[in-house]
Design a protein around this nucleic acid. Structure first.
Length: 468
RNA sequence: GUGACCGUAGCUCAGCCGGCAGAGCGCCAGAUUGUGGCUCUGGAGGUCGCGGGUUCAAGCCCCGUCGGUCACCCCA
């Protein structure tokens, strides 16, 4: 029989136990933090109707949707409808629509918006939720970019108050500190401020996107690079001067905000953005977030999607990995499902990049690679019952215990424990049984001692203290 | 979507001008019949991604194809 190549679908990964032990630890830390702030869990289906997803992520996003093929009679009629089209009418989009009416979710924000609109009567506003689930994108895989990956979103719907915006940044900071990162800085900006800056610098509307994209490159190409690139675009010298002058402002957020007032303060949107930013920085100070962890940064742009207000991006200053997460305020997305706008603010955690960063910063080194804490050895058929009894006692005490599968020499049993990373082995043979003892071996330290059978559980517990 | 590079043992890779398929790690066994890791000794393991072409001869050259990596775009 021909062997089937055991390869993953492109851009997907298997998570072996040693990977998952680590991932679950991070997931648990995130959940605990979110719930400590009063955010509640939410899950939505993997599959959505394409009408929910299409048009929300731009043309690129529509192209990257994983579409589910229609089945049976629906597929047949879809094919017939396609046959009826002329060759010129058979665009990729038209074919996709004819043959598919469902797709895998592309992110967590749009399904969240659908849920808010669908369950208005069951949701108390302001509503805080968190969501950690995989999403799918038919992208070309790259380092740190997969076609199936987990997203982790934290959002609050129903409040315009900047206290919520500040809370989002505080949660970001708290999670990254708890994970052990140092040098974590959240860069904060405002979409309204950017729009006002464009307007007051006389940037033509068709140049907004290109100008913002250039500004976004500040940390890559520097202020001079931005100036050069802006000059090449069809912007007036005065516009380039004012933009780079604004971007070059340094100092505390408060002083930068005051320096910007003369530039954009005459624009109502700009004035409001500056007020909101001042509030966010003020609340963050009240919440006890250290000022050196925060930066007002005009070069934060965050894609060009649905953000309408504050935007944030959290980075590791001592790494080239880039952003570990980000978010912002988006007040118009839910309106697409609800018919009226509801204010929203949210952040996401770039989980896959966080795991890369944990590796890079070597913050996950000596972690255990198995959930099992103790192996009970099996000596012979006659001692089997004693081994089972010991394991039952250990499990009753909450110790994650496995019994070796069959009586065998001690060597393979210890090799097994060592390879798996099980920290403790309990050896129970005729000698121990005769003396009513257990040989308790700590494989991490290479130490072994004989303990009385009655004190075994306590001895194991004391060797395991400090572990979770 | 655009461009560059790479596919050789389970993994990471070497293989010169075309001339017998290699190393390290891992794996298995023994040294060690009640003790993992360290050390030593030995062993197993290959359709050189796949298909075609050139040649007396192809891992190496040519064409195609599939897969992977990286950069750009976009994004998490």
């Amino acid at each position: 029989m021909a062997r089937i190549a055991p390869v993953n679908a492109r851009g997907t990964r298997d998570f072996l136990p040693r990977d998952l032990v680590r991932r679950n630890r991070v997931f648990a830390l995130l959940r605990a933090t979110f719930e400590r702030y009063g955010f509640e869990p939410l899950e939505t289906p993997s599959i959505e109707n394409t009408s929910v997803l299409e048009g929300k992520y731009g043309e690129e996003g529509d192209r990257l949707l994983f579409r589910i093929l229609k089945r049976g009679r629906e597929l047949e009629s879809g094919v017939r409808a396609l046959d009826a089209l002329s060759l010129g009418e058979r665009s990729t989009a038209a074919m996709s629509r004819a043959l598919s009416d469902e797709a895998l979710r592309y992110d967590l924000t749009v399904p969240f918006a659908r849920v808010i609109a669908a369950h208005q009567n069951d949701i108390v506003l302001p509503f805080r939720r968190y969501q950690m689930q995989p999403v799918w994108r038919a992208d070309k895989p790259q380092r740190g970019r997969y076609r199936e990956f987990y997203q982790c979103d934290v959002d609050c719907v129903g409040s315009r108050s900047m206290t919520v915006d500040a809370e989002m940044v505080a949660i970001h900071q708290e999670v990254f500190a708890a994970l052990g990162f140092s040098g974590v800085v959240t860069r904060i900006n405002h979409r309204g401020l950017l729009a006002a800056l464009m307007a007051t610098c006389d940037v033509p509307e068709e140049q907004y996107v290109a100008t913002l994209t250039t500004m976004d490159k500040l940390d890559k190409i520097g202020l001079d690079g931005v100036r050069t690139e802006l000059s090449k675009a069809s912007l007036s010298d005065a516009a380039v001067d004012r933009l780079t002058q604004a971007m070059g402002l340094t100092g505390t957020p408060e002083t930068i905000i005051e320096s910007l007032r003369p530039i954009v303060g005459s624009n109502p949107m700009g004035a409001q953005a500056l007020d909101e930013l001042a509030q966010v920085f003020g609340y963050l100070a009240d919440m006890g977030v250290p000022a050196e962890r925060l930066r007002f940064d005009l070069s934060v742009v965050r894609g060009l999607g649905y953000y309408t207000g504050t935007i944030y991006e959290t980075v590791l200053t001592n790494s080239t990995l880039g952003s570990l997460g980000g978010g912002g305020r988006y007040d118009q997305l839910i309106g697409m499902f609800l018919g009226r706008d509801l204010p929203c603010v949210g952040i996401s955690f770039g989980l896959e990049r966080i795991f890369d960063a944990l590796d890079e910063q070597e913050l996950a080194r000596d972690e255990v690679t198995t959930t099992t804490q103790a192996l009970v050895t099996l000596f012979a058929a006659e001692t089997l019952a004693s081994s089972f009894a010991l394991a039952t006692e250990l499990r009753a005490a909450g110790i994650r215990t496995e019994v070796y599968t069959e009586p065998k020499d001690l060597r393979p049993q210890l090799t097994f424990a060592s390879k798996k990373g099980i920290p403790l082995a309990l050896i129970l043979g005729p000698d121990e049984l005769a003396n009513d003892t257990v040989a308790l071996r700590d494989l991490r330290a290479g130490a072994q001692r004989i303990v009385p059978r009655s004190e075994t559980v306590a001895a194991v517990q004391s060797l395991l203290t400090g572990e979770s």
